[in-house]
Every structure is written in structure tokens, then in C-alpha cells.
Design a protein around this nucleic acid. Sequence first.
DNA 1: TTCTTTGTTTAGACATAGTCTAAGCTAGGA
DNA 2: TCCTAGCTTAGACTATGTCTAAACAAAGAA
Lengths: 138, 138
Amino acid sequence: MSDLVTRLRRHNWRITPQRRVIAETLEGSHVHFTAEEILERACERMPELSRATVYNTLNEMVALGEVLELALDGRSKRYDPGVDEEHHHLICEGCGLMKDVHAVTDPLGWLPADERHGFAVTRASVTYRGRCPDCQDA
Amino acid sequence: MSDLVTRLRRHNWRITPQRRVIAETLEGSHVHFTAEEILERACERMPELSRATVYNTLNEMVALGEVLELALDGRSKRYDPGVDEEHHHLICEGCGLMKDVHAVTDPLGWLPADERHGFAVTRASVTYRGRCPDCQDA
DNA sequence: TTCTTTGTTTAGACATAGTCTAAGCTAGGA
DNA sequence: TCCTAGCTTAGACTATGTCTAAACAAAGAA
């Protein structure tokens, strides 16, 4: 059973069959899917699932704070269910492959007070870019 | 005269009137514009400038490595001419205001070798999020 | 059970951001 | 001058995401 579903239920959020399929699709993979990819995969289990439900559901999960929305390539957003675990992202500039990675310190501490422009800074995420093993050879 | 134009010329890249207006619009501001914002502002100086030219020109500048493409909000890309200067971005979650900031260490050093998954990692950028002074009151 | 209320899902229209195409234009070289 | 290569243009097209109105479903009240 999906841990994301458990977390969502705690918000008194109704777990309909559609929402369960979407949550399990999101969580059942190590890569971060786009909305269209989630729609496609979820439709294998529930063919009548509509595009609007997938977009609505993903946006609601993000609003509940249980899923992270990633805007890393400017084309489409990707969704990351690992919201509880502090991590960053490593992206291949050749093929777009994305991996979760863990850095050894918290980047919030790297930003001096005089660089904060009066902001209340709450989050920091690092995007590492490079070339994956396959794309280094090409 | 625009420093970006100087840098672009070094690539033997033809500086047409259209390209000059786009480059000067990009560089003449402290905020990072979207393509549509650049089009709008550049059209004040050159009304017949077309959308396609703006998009083509921005993509070519990015390909030449003289402008950075930022995908920070998942809606539209923004363009940053300050490619030579190491900096990161601070974004207000309330109003979308974006500021350039400078951190005290290079995040590349904080990614251990066993977290690199065989990638040749070349760049790291930090996105800080929070609320700007105006949005903290609201 | 049946009715009502509230929230969910759906198809498709719409909006926004960006790319492509085909034609015309322009600058520089022969 | 003409030729050629590359640049620019308008508008069609594609991709991604949002909105709307109607149908549907579940939970509580009578």
C-alpha cells in the first residue's frame, strides 16, 4: 500500500479510486514523471481516467504539501512524492535523466543575511547539472 | 554599449539590428524577463520585431553559452545575461519576485562522489524560496 | 429508503508558451 | 550587378495546462 496515500488521508482528503491510482503511479517509480506520463501510466489501470482529474489531483497534492512540483526543464512540470526527505536533483544535460541526490550540508546556511534582501527564506534546493555515464561517451 | 553584444560578436555571430535590440533589452534590466516580456519591451524600440525572431535569438544566445535559460516556475522560461558571474536565485512564493544572490560556497563541493552516480557534474545552482518583505505582511 | 447537499469526475473548450514553415528580405562576396 | 547564405516575418501548428458546465457519487437527514 502506498505511503503517499496514508499521508494524504491524514489531511481528511477523500481517497477516491482515481486519486489512489494517481498516487500509486506517482510513488511507484524512482523517476519523476510529468503529468502526461502519469496520465498515460494511470490509464493503463483505469482507462476512463480523465486528463483534468490528473491535473486537479496533482495540484491538490502539491497544495497539501505532500508532493513537490519540479520545474527543471521549462517544458513540463514533474512531480516528486518524496517531500519528507531532504534531497536535491541531478540532471543530465544530454538526455534529461534525473536522479535524486543528497548533499552533505543544508544550502540555507550558505546564504548570508545581507544577501537575503529582507526575505523570509524557507527553502533551498540545488540543481546539479552534468552528463550521465551514457552521455559522456556520446 | 552592451557588454553582451561584445561577447556575442566574439562568436562571429552577426549582430543585426533585431539581435542588438534583443540583447540590449536583456541586459538593460536587473530582473530576468520572459521571452514575451522581452518581445514587448523590444517592440517599443522596434515595433515590427516578430515573436519568432525573439525566440530564435534567445535560443541562439543560450546555445552560444552567453545567456542562461532559467526554468524556475514551470510557466515560462526566463533569460539571464549574467552568465559569467557565479550567482543563484531567490524567489518570492507570494508574488514571484526574483533576485540574484551570492552564496558563500560552491555547492559543487557539497555533493559527495558516491552521490554522483557516475555523472560528470559541471554546474550547480541553488534556488532559494521564501517571502519578500511585501508578501510577509500580507 | 429516498432526498439533499457537497464534493468529484468528465469531455471538451479555452489559454498560454513555444516551435515550425514557407516566403520574402538583406548583406556580403564574386 | 547578381548570387548565395543567412535572417526575419506572419501565421499555422504543437504542447502543456486550466476552466467550465454537466453528470456523477457519497454521506447525512428525514
